[in-house]
Write a protein that binds this DNA or RNA. Sequence first.
DNA 1: CTTCAACAATCAGGATACGCATAGTCAGTG
DNA 2: CACTGACTATGCGTATCCTGATTGTTGAAG
Lengths: 225, 225
Amino acid sequence: MRILIVEDEKPLREQIQSLMATEKYACDAAADGREGLFLGTEYDYDLAIIDLGLPLLDGSSLIKQLRAKARNYPILILTARGNWQDKVEGLEAGADDYLTKPFHPEELRARIHALLRRASGHASSVLRYGPISIDTSAKRVFRDEAEVELTSFEYNTLTYLAMHAGKNISKSELTEHLYAQDYDRDSNVIEVFVGRLRKKLDPEGTLNLITTQRGLGYRFNLDKQ
Amino acid sequence: MRILIVEDEKPLREQIQSLMATEKYACDAAADGREGLFLGTEYDYDLAIIDLGLPLLDGSSLIKQLRAKARNYPILILTARGNWQDKVEGLEAGADDYLTKPFHPEELRARIHALLRRASGHASSVLRYGPISIDTSAKRVFRDEAEVELTSFEYNTLTYLAMHAGKNISKSELTEHLYAQDYDRDSNVIEVFVGRLRKKLDPEGTLNLITTQRGLGYRFNLDKQ
DNA sequence: CTTCAACAATCAGGATACGCATAGTCAGTG
DNA sequence: CACTGACTATGCGTATCCTGATTGTTGAAG
């Protein structure tokens, strides 16, 4: 999951960033509306958290512009307590939920979970793809009823691919979603981990689990059931 | 265990809160139906206690809306003595049990225990996992018929893990359910307590009681019997 | 058909951050 | 004021992640 934070107050921004870090979400932060618009347009986020009172470009204009550019990820807005007009304006601009400052970190976290869950539309916690099943609440993976032990990063990579089964996912999309902004592009971590996943989940290569689309990315090849 | 209380009468609400505190449950309280709906929707509770006569949004509507949003934790309703219709309506809306006011704290305590136990799929108040058994009503723990003395926090950690046996429970999920509201995130309490549990319950490490899935969480490894 | 460049896979070793043990501090309680 | 239990601080070991070189594969150009 990759999350965008647009918040001008540095302490709050950093607090949110560290909260996202504990959730193992990759996140980018912008300190004003302009920068927010740039990042929000440039990258494909899973969620954005936007303060309404921003320098250079205010929150609801930012949201309007993002929506106008067909950026459809869920947006959570932050408002000062009691600013009814702002809140309503933000929601009308295209935000999905709001939170009034100050808030408890727990509250923010819960909202984010709810938005992400709603966005992905996954009701059950067990995803089945033929012989492979992924229990997202237990964070365990099985092949033919036998558990396959995955590390945290392997697990994240697999679920991202599986949740976009049938689609070509480029390596850069994967790194973008699994890592925070500043990540060394010319590394081959993804290849390494895809290799590990293939070895662990399909050592004989009979499933054709993850195929390589040269120049395009990887594709998870089992249908969801 | 994390519990939600929705009750408009302040004295009663606080009485219940302090009762929950003595039980070492983390709990949040709401004074009206709206707030109750918000909290109940956004957080993952283990149980909710809801008064039927509430301002802004009445109890049974609240329950209906929670259930409609797939919030499946057990709900205990509180009714004034003799309000048959209300009680029935509440149960039909999706409550699991009721209690008529005024009630003895003991009675509330017993009902809560029963509901939590039932929710985790255990009929009796003694949970058995191989050589480990947990008596949830007496809050005592045994290994091979010998009692193991646990402190209250150790006990809570153990029961939460045991009630979700087989699942990887992240440290943040543990803190969410064991502590109320905000809690300092970069602390290693959980690690310390898991360490103590292992030492007390399985000093030789023969049971493989709680395993660590680096980056994913902890897992209680004994099957329920 | 062969060659070549670009891209991908593999492997092993090093760096890092995660989790653990231990000990120490602090707060509450009798 | 001693005692217990909750939490913090520190250093250490190691699983996990990342790197870079090497080997393998692909597809287009000659």
